[in-house]
Amino acid sequence: MSVRYLPAVVAAALLGSIAVAAPAAAEVEHSAADAGLTSGRLGPTVTALLGLMAIVIGTRALTRVGRSGTGNSRNQAVLALVSGLVSLALGSWFAVTADGGPGTGNGIVGAWAAMVFGLIALVLGALTLNRSRQAGRIG
């Protein structure tokens, strides 16, 4: 295997996207384009992970909004909103610029996942901000 494929293989192994033994040297380049983490899949995958992280942050902020430290919940809600917006925008960009459908290596599935995750994070962040404002008026 060539050294130039090493970062892509390490990243794919960390993400759990490949779990196969290395085939013969002649077949490595062919299988890396079909099943591995291609350059078209890397951006949407990272964007989808950003959206997933925003969902986790938004969920944690929403569950903690009624407690005494509402300032931290507001900060987390804003972080979920911004991360969700970035995930939604970049996912939309990757979906528009993808050349093929699912399975072509262009990242269309990751782009759609990023858009869905970003939208969920936006809703969670908005709910948290709304509840923190209501808790501020009452308390």
Results as ranks from 00 to 15, higher is better:
residue 25 A to R: 05
residue 6 L to P: 00
residue 139 G to K: 11
residue 26 A to R: 09
residue 122 L to N: 07
residue 112 W to R: 12
residue 83 S to D: 06
residue 24 A to W: 02
residue 113 A to T: 05
residue 118 G to A: 13
residue 52 L to A: 15
residue 70 T to G: 10
residue 47 T to M: 07
residue 79 L to W: 03
residue 63 T to V: 12
residue 111 A to T: 08
residue 91 G to I: 02
residue 134 Q to T: 07
residue 75 N to L: 12
residue 127 L to D: 13
residue 78 V to Q: 11
residue 94 F to K: 00
residue 137 R to S: 10
residue 126 A to L: 09
residue 84 G to C: 04
residue 33 A to I: 05
residue 79 L to D: 12
residue 7 P to G: 01
residue 28 V to F: 03
residue 55 I to K: 02
residue 66 G to L: 04
residue 24 A to R: 10
residue 101 G to L: 13
residue 125 G to N: 08
residue 109 V to P: 01
residue 135 A to G: 03
residue 32 A to C: 10
residue 96 V to D: 12
residue 88 L to S: 15
residue 12 A to H: 03
residue 8 A to V: 00
residue 36 G to A: 12
residue 33 A to R: 13
residue 130 N to E: 12
residue 43 G to K: 01
residue 124 L to P: 00
residue 25 A to K: 05
residue 124 L to N: 05
residue 40 G to N: 02
residue 82 V to E: 10
residue 97 T to Y: 08
residue 56 V to T: 07
residue 45 T to S: 12
residue 64 R to K: 11
residue 130 N to S: 14
residue 110 G to M: 03
residue 93 W to E: 02
residue 110 G to R: 07
residue 45 T to C: 04
residue 24 A to E: 10
residue 86 V to L: 15
residue 134 Q to A: 14
residue 32 A to N: 10
residue 136 G to Y: 04
residue 128 T to P: 00
residue 92 S to A: 14
residue 18 I to H: 07
residue 39 S to E: 12
residue 116 V to M: 11
residue 98 A to P: 01
residue 14 L to C: 14
residue 120 I to R: 01
residue 71 G to S: 11
residue 94 F to S: 00
residue 7 P to Q: 11
residue 139 G to N: 13
residue 42 L to I: 07
residue 58 G to D: 01
residue 42 L to M: 15
residue 91 G to Y: 02
residue 52 L to H: 10
residue 53 M to W: 11
residue 15 L to M: 13
residue 83 S to G: 15
residue 91 G to H: 03
residue 93 W to M: 08
residue 46 V to H: 01
residue 108 I to D: 02
residue 25 A to Y: 05
residue 41 R to G: 02
residue 114 A to Y: 14
residue 31 S to H: 04
residue 94 F to V: 00
residue 77 A to D: 05
residue 71 G to M: 10
residue 80 A to D: 06
residue 38 T to R: 01
residue 36 G to H: 11
residue 6 L to F: 14
residue 117 F to H: 09
residue 92 S to P: 04
residue 91 G to F: 03
residue 2 S to P: 14
residue 2 S to V: 09
residue 10 V to W: 05
residue 117 F to E: 10
residue 119 L to R: 02
residue 138 I to S: 15
residue 128 T to H: 03
residue 119 L to N: 03
residue 29 E to P: 06
residue 17 S to N: 11
residue 72 N to I: 08
residue 102 P to Y: 10
residue 121 A to N: 00
residue 27 E to V: 01
residue 33 A to M: 07
residue 61 A to F: 09
residue 98 A to G: 00
residue 103 G to T: 01
residue 133 R to G: 14
residue 95 A to V: 09
residue 55 I to V: 15
residue 15 L to Q: 02
residue 121 A to L: 04
residue 138 I to Y: 08
residue 13 A to E: 11
residue 7 P to I: 01
residue 85 L to S: 05
residue 48 A to T: 06
residue 107 G to R: 04
residue 126 A to E: 08
residue 30 H to Q: 14
residue 23 P to L: 09
residue 126 A to F: 08
residue 63 T to S: 11
residue 126 A to D: 09
residue 39 S to I: 08
residue 71 G to P: 04
residue 53 M to N: 10
residue 11 A to Q: 13
residue 70 T to K: 08
residue 84 G to D: 03
residue 109 V to D: 10
residue 113 A to H: 02
residue 4 R to Y: 08
residue 106 N to C: 07
residue 102 P to T: 09
